[in-house]
Write a protein that binds this DNA or RNA. Structure first.
Length: 812
RNA sequence: GCCGGAGUGGCGGAAUUGGCAGACGCACCGGACUCAAAAUCCGGAGCUGCGCAAGCAGCGUGGGGGUUCAAGUCCCCCCUCCGGCACCA
C-alpha cells in the first residue's frame, strides 16, 4: 500500500497548506539579506502552460526555495502580461470582451502553476490589464512625455485596405494579410514614438554592469549598433545645396567614384535630370511597393542613375549620383559616398553597373574583391591635387582621425556617431492595450493630469477595426469626447493604445509593492529589493523586451523612482524543450506535452525533477516520458527509505555509520554548490547516488534521513514536506536551514590513483590520501600490471599529481 | 553571408586548473521473488579482436593536423547541426 509515493493525495494537500498559510509570502523584513528571483511573466494564452514554461519556472522555484532555507528574504512572484492580440482577435470573432477571456486564461494558468508546486507569493500577483496596474504604465508614459521622450511622428505601418486595419508584422505573411490574404501596403500613419536613441550610449555602456550570457550581450550591442565615422558634405554640381553623407571610412574619401541616395531621399527630386526622370520615378515607385523584407531579400543590386553629380571635397572630382534600395533612408543621412574598392556592397554595385573601382588602400586585389581591412594595408592615391594634404603611406586606422580633423578644420565635415537603433514606435491601432493619457484639440496633444489616471478602456459592443486605420476606440463616441483638462475646451481622446511591451517594461518593480495606490513603488522597498538578482526567461526576448525594459528603467532612474541604473543583474535563458521526436513541439507534429497530464500520471515532483534532470538549463533538449517515469521510480525509492510497506516509520534513532554520513555530507556539499550554479541536473544525479548507496545499507538512521529531506526539498517540495511531517515535525520545512556539511566528512582518506606508462592507463591503486611520490611509485612498481612495462626499461621521467595520477615515461 | 552556440555509448547527458572518458537516468540483457505477470530488489554492459574464463590487447569524445609526459578540454584547418540577424555605409 505504501510502496510508492502517493503523490495524488499528498501533493494537493500540501499545495492547499501553502496557500492557506501564505507560506511563501515575502515580508519586507529588511534585516534579512534579500534575494529577488524573477521569471519572465507569461502571456496567459488559451492554450495553457506548456512544459517549456515549467522548465524556467521550476529552475527559479528551486533556487527560491533553497535561498529561503539559506536565510534569505526571497521575492518570487508572478503575474500576467495580459494585453495583446489573441484576446482581441477572439473578441472580434465572438464578441466576448477580452477581459473575460483573459480572466479565464489567467485562472487556468494560476491553477497550473499551483499544481506544479511553484512557490510564488500569490498576494503579489500583478495583471497588466488591471486599471490599478496600468494606471502606473500610463503614469510612466506621462513622465516620458514630460521629459520630451515621447513625440508624435508619421511612421509607415502595415496597412491593409481590405481589412481596414493596421497589421502587426506577424499578421503579414509574404506581403499579404494572414487573415484573408489581402494586399498590405506600407503607409505612413500618426504614431507615438519613444526617443530610446537618446539613451543609446547608456544602454550600450551599462551592459558592463550585468552578468548576462555573452551571446545576449553581443546581440544587444549589435542592435544598438554604435559606429563612429564622419559626416562629409559634398557640393552638388549645378544645383544649390549640399549632399551630406555618413561614412565610417573617411580614409577612403579619395576612392569615392559615385554617390548613392536612398530612393526616398528628399534630394532625389531636385537632382534628377529630365532625361532620367522617367527611370528614376519608376524605380522610386518600385521601391515603395516593396516591403522592408523584400527589399532586404533581393540579392542582386539594383539602382538608377539620376543624371546629377556631386563634387568630392578632397579632390574636386565630379561623381555621378545614383539611387539604390540598398541604401536605407532610416540610417545615417540616407546617402553614401560609394567606395567600391573598399566596401563589399559598393563593389557589387559597381560591378553590376560598370562603375570605376579605384584603389586607395593597398593590400588586396580590388579587381577581385573589396579590400576592407582597417588594421593593415597602406593608403595610396590620396593626396589633394594641390598637394596641400595627403594621407598616403598611413594605415587606415591612423588615416581616419587625420582626415576627419582636416575635414573639420575646413568646414567640410566632422566626426559623427551613428546608431542602428531607431526610436521606438510606441502605438498600436488596437483596442486591447493601455489607452494613452492624452487628449487632442486642433491637432495639438495635451497630457492628462495624474489625478485623472487611470484612464480606463471603455467597454465596447463591437471590437472590429474602425476601418479608418484608427483603433476600435474611434467608435467609442462617448469615451472619445472629452475636454482639455487645462482649458476646458472640447477635446478628443487619443485612439491609439500602447504596445504589449509597455506593461512588461516595469512589472518587476510592481511586484515589490503591488498594491500601493499612491506610488508606482515605495522608495524604501525599492531600495531594499532592487536590483533583480536572477532573471530567467527565453532567448527570444534577448533584444527587444530586455532593451525596452532597460530603457524605461534608466528613465525611472533619472527621475529618482528607482535606485539602480540596471534592473537585471544576472540573466539566464532556459533552453527550448523539443518533442519526444526531437522536433519543435507543435500541434502540427502532434508532439505537444501537456504538463497537467504529466502531473496526473507521475506527480508534480516527478515532473519538476525530470525537467531539471534532462540536461543543462540553457540547453535545447528533447522530452522523454520514459524519463519522467524513471524520476518517479527514484522518488518511490526515497519514499521507501522512510516509510515501510505497512505505512509505519522506517527511520530509527540509532546513529548512522560513518560511511553513510560521508555520502550524506558529500551530497549536501554538491547539491548546495550545484543549486547556486544552476546546475540542477548534476545536483539530482548526486541525490540519486545518495539513495543508491544508502538503500542497500541496513541503517535507516534519522541522523541520515532527516537532513536528506531538507536537501531534496527544493526539488521535490511535496514529498519532502510529507516526509518532514512523518519525521515528527509540524508545519512547513520551507524555512528550515539548509543542512551544513562537515568538510572532514567530504574528503575521503583513501584515494584512487591512476598509474600510466607512457600516458596509457595500466593500473589504478587505492592509496592513503596525500601519499608522496616515492610511496606511490613504490606501490605502482610493485603492481605486476605496471611492473610488466617498467622493469628493465629506461625510466626517462616520472610525473606525479598528488592523489590523482602517476605517469611513468620509459624509453621505447 | 555575418554573429552566437553545439557535435561524447542505442538515447538524454557527466567529467574544478589539461590528469582514470562515459557519473546519473532512459532503453536493453541476465538473475532473485512469483503458479505466472506487474512491481520491487541484485547484477551486467563504449566498440573491436583473442580467450571456456578471471582476463589480455587495440581503438575510442564530428574529421584532419599540432602542442604536451598527458588533450573531450589548448592551437590551426575542415565538416555538420541548431539559434539569431541580415545590404546599417
Amino acid at each position: 500500500m505504501s510502496k510508492r509515493f502517493p503523490f495524488a493525495e499528498v501533493e494537493p494537500r500540501w499545495q492547499k497548506y501553502w496557500l492557506e498559510n501564505k507560506t511563501f509570502a515575502a515580508g519586507d523584513d529588511t534585516s534579512k539579506p534579500k534575494f529577488y528571483c524573477l521569471d519572465m511573466f507569461p502571456y496567459p494564452s488559451g492554450a495553457g502552460l506548456h512544459v517549456g514554461h515549467i522548465e524556467g519556472y521550476t529552475a527559479t522555484d528551486i533556487l527560491s526555495r533553497y535561498k529561503r532555507m539559506k536565510g534569505f528574504n526571497v521575492l518570487h512572484c508572478t503575474g500576467w502580461d495580459a494585453f495583446g492580440l489573441p484576446a482581441e482577435q477572439y473578441a472580434v470573432k465572438t464578441g466576448v470582451h477580452p477581459a473575460i477571456t483573459t480572466k479565464q486564461n489567467i485562472d487556468n494558468f494560476r491553477q497550473q502553476m499551483q499544481r506544479a508546486g511553484l512557490s510564488y507569493d500569490w498576494d503579489r500577483e500583478v495583471d497588466t490589464t488591471d486599471p490599478a496596474y496600468y494606471r502606473w504604465t500610463q503614469w510612466i508614459f506621462l513622465k516620458l512625455y514630460e521629459r520630451g521622450l515621447a513625440y508624435v511622428a508619421e511612421i509607415p505601418v502595415n496597412w491593409c485596405p481590405e481589412l481596414g486595419t493596421v497589421l502587426a508584422n506577424e499578421e503579414v505573411v509574404d506581403g499579404k494579410s494572414e487573415v484573408g490574404g489581402f494586399e498590405v501596403i506600407r503607409q505612413p500613419m500618426r504614431q507615438w514614438v519613444l526617443k530610446i536613441t537618446e539613451y543609446a550610449d547608456r544602454l550600450l555602456d551599462d551592459l558592463r554592469m550585468v552578468e548576462w550570457p555573452n551571446g545576449t550581450l553581443i546581440m544587444q550591442k549589435e542592435w544598438i549598433g554604435r559606429s563612429t565615422g564622419a559626416e562629409v558634405d559634398f557640393a552638388l554640381d549645378g544645383v544649390k545645396g549640399n549632399l551630406r553623407i555618413f561614412t565610417t571610412r573617411p580614409d577612403t574619401l579619395f576612392g569615392a567614384t559615385y554617390m548613392v541616395l536612398a530612393p526616398e531621399h528628399p534630394l532625389v527630386d531636385v537632382l534628377t535630370a529630365p532625361a532620367q526622370r522617367e527611370a528614376v520615378s519608376a524605380y522610386v515607385e518600385a521601391t515603395r511597393r516593396k516591403s522592408d523584407l523584400e527589399r532586404q531579400q533581393d540579392k542582386k543590386k539594383t539602382g538608377v542613375f539620376t543624371g546629377g553629380h556631386a563634387i568630392n571635397p578632397v579632390n574636386g572630382e565630379k561623381l555621378p549620383i545614383w539611387i539604390a534600395d540598398y541604401v536605407m533612408m532610416g540610417y545615417g543621412t540616407g546617402a553614401i559616398m560609394a567606395v567600391p574598392a573598399h566596401d563589399e556592397r559598393d563593389w557589387e554595385f559597381a560591378r553590376e553597373f560598370g562603375l570605376t573601382i579605384r584603389e586607395v588602400v593597398s593590400g588586396g586585389d580590388v579587381q577581385q574583391a573589396a579590400f576592407t581591412e582597417t588594421d593593415e594595408g597602406t593608403i595610396v592615391n590620396s593626396t589633394a591635387p594641390d598637394g596641400a594634404f595627403s594621407i598616403d603611406g598611413l594605415t587606415p586606422d591612423t588615416a581616419i582621425p587625420k582626415i576627419t580633423e582636416w575635414l573639420a578644420t575646413r568646414g567640410l565635415g566632422q566626426k559623427a556617431v551613428n546608431y542602428k537603433l531607431r526610436d521606438w514606435a510606441f502605438s498600436r491601432q488596437r483596442y486591447w492595450g493601455e489607452p494613452f493619457p492624452i487628449v487632442w484639440t486642433d491637432g495639438r496633444h495635451h497630457p492628462l493630469p495624474e489625478s485623472q489616471l487611470p484612464l480606463r478602456l471603455p467597454d465596447l459592443q463591437e471590437y472590429k477595426p474602425s476601418g479608418t486605420g484608427e483603433s476600435p476606440l474611434a467608435n467609442a463616441a462617448e469615451w472619445l469626447a472629452t475636454t482639455d483638462p487645462e482649458t476646458g475646451a472640447p477635446a478628443r481622446r487619443e485612439t491609439n493604445t500602447m504596445p504589449q511591451w509597455a506593461g512588461s517594461c516595469w512589472y518587476y518593480l510592481r511586484f515589490i509593492d503591488p498594491k500601493n495606490p499612491g506610488a508606482l513603488v515605495d522608495p524604501a522597498k525599492e531600495k531594499y529589493w532592487m536590483p533583480v538578482d536572477l532573471y530567467v526567461g527565453g532567448a527570444e526576448h534577448a533584444v527587444l523586451h530586455l532593451l525596452y525594459a532597460r530603457f524605461w528603467h534608466k528613465v525611472l532612474f533619472d527621475i529618482g523612482v528607482v535606485s539602480t541604473p540596471e534592473p537585471f543583474i544576472k540573466l539566464v535563458h532556459q533552453g527550448i524543450i523539443l518533442g519526444e521526436d526531437g522536433r519543435k513541439m507543435s500541434k502540427r507534429w502532434g508532439n505537444v506535452v501537456d504538463p497537467n497530464e504529466m502531473i496526473d500520471q507521475y506527480g508534480a515532483d516527478s515532473l519538476r525533477i525530470f525537467e531539471m534532470f534532462m540536461g543543462p538549463l540553457e540547453a535545447m533538449k528533447p522530452w522523454s516520458s520514459k524519463g519522467v517515469e524513471g524520476i518517479m521510480r527514484f522518488l518511490d525509492r526515497v519514499w521507501r527509505l522512510y516509510v515501510n510497506e505497512d505505512g509505519s516509520h522506517a527511520f530509527t534513532a540509532e546513529p548512522a555509520p560513518v560511511e553513510a554520513l560521508r555520502i550524506l555530507h558529500k551530497t549536501i556539499a554538491k547539491v548546495g554548490r550545484d543549486i547556486e550554479d544552476l546546475k540542477f541536473n548534476t545536483a539530482i544525479a548526486q541525490m540519486m547516488v545518495f539513495v543508491n548507496e544508502v538503500n542497500p545499507m541496513p541503517t535507516r538512521s534519522r541522523e541520515l534521513l532527516e537532513p536528506f529531506v531538507l536537501v531534496l526539498a527544493p526539488f521535490a517540495p511535496h514529498l519532502a514536506e510529507e516526509l518532514w511531517s512523518r519525521l515528527g515535525h509540524t508545519g512547513t520545512l520551507s524555512y528550515e536551514p539548509f543542512p551544513a556539511f562537515d568538510p572532514a566528512l567530504v574528503v575521503e582518506d583513501t584515494v584512487t590513483v591512476a598509474v600510466q606508462v607512457n600516458g596509457k592507463l595500466r593500473a589504478t591503486l587505492d592509496l592513503p590520501r596525500g601519499a608522496e611520490q616515492a610511496a606511490v611509485q613504490e606501490a605502482a612498481f610493485a603492481d605486476e600490471r605496471v611492473a610488466k612495462y617498467v622493469t628493465g626499461a629506461t625510466i626517462k621521467k616520472v610525473i606525479h599529481v598528488k592523489d590523482k595520477l602517476l605517469n611513468v615515461v620509459v624509453a621505447s
